[in-house]
Design a protein around this nucleic acid. Sequence first.
DNA 1: AAATATTATATTGTGCGCAATATGATTGTA
DNA 2: TACAATCATATTGCGCACAATATAATATTT
Lengths: 153, 153
Amino acid sequence: MDLPDDGDPLDLDRQVCFPLYAASNLLNRLYRPILAELGLTYPQYLVMLVLWKKAPRSVGSLGDVLYLDSGTLTPLLKRMETAGLISRTRDAEDERRVLVDLTDKGRDLRSEAEKVPGALADGLGIDEASVTRLRDQVRGLVEALNGSTVKKP
Amino acid sequence: MDLPDDGDPLDLDRQVCFPLYAASNLLNRLYRPILAELGLTYPQYLVMLVLWKKAPRSVGSLGDVLYLDSGTLTPLLKRMETAGLISRTRDAEDERRVLVDLTDKGRDLRSEAEKVPGALADGLGIDEASVTRLRDQVRGLVEALNGSTVKKP
DNA sequence: AAATATTATATTGTGCGCAATATGATTGTA
DNA sequence: TACAATCATATTGCGCACAATATAATATTT
């Protein structure tokens, strides 16, 4: 089913980046209606996943895990605070930092969120082994990318 | 190097979607300064790649290839028109359609764009074989996703 | 032919994601 | 103690992505 390789490096079908971009968009589209029932967007859901593991955490440590900066996180966290899912308080030990913690409402949301991965797998229908393989390869790319974008010469 | 698998489906490290999301963000971040020299954003660059292969094309056919809809493409194409890279004209054969074509300036940009893949590979530093393998796997996912999000029951 | 349905693009409103910059707290140093 | 440098978060401005809706043209049905 492959087209003949005409050697053009500007061919869309030769790009790695485009499938990743498309997959990310399509996944977001698939998640959206499922997460909307929890009142979350996809990046907000990621923040909750991180906080359910360990809270409180600083804004910066959230950003380290999710590869996002304060320009993205600050307004996002404010919306989540308004929604009553998290609290944001200055760290008394270091007033530069803001500590993000779960509220009771935020903690309670976890039981609802447990249905999310299943609902998604249904809408996808690909076997778990290939998903795991894909995941590990993309992770390798993320590490390579993180090395080359974060690097300060 | 793996953490013990505690079986929690809400563990960030078990998600396929998060690495894809992170990779897409990081790639965009890597592309941005390179494409900025051409006066393009990443999705605009994708539009140019498609048009360099075949133009004119309708907005809808661009969307089919790039998995985007008119809500995203219309304003994006207007910006590209303002920048003088493309033209947008109603199709005389079917006045619902808008045909997007390259201008001379848009065609000329191709020679500059040929440097982009090389500049990127430099900043990445992973071998071509694993890139190709990754690309094909992500493509498989995109097809699965496209099936499940486009599907109309 | 008239009414209805479908199709293609445009518009509106919300929430990211990011670079660039600003602000204020802490650390290092003269 | 000052004062410069660094650090953590916040702000600003722009361009996506998307759902929902609107508008106008074509196709289908009656």
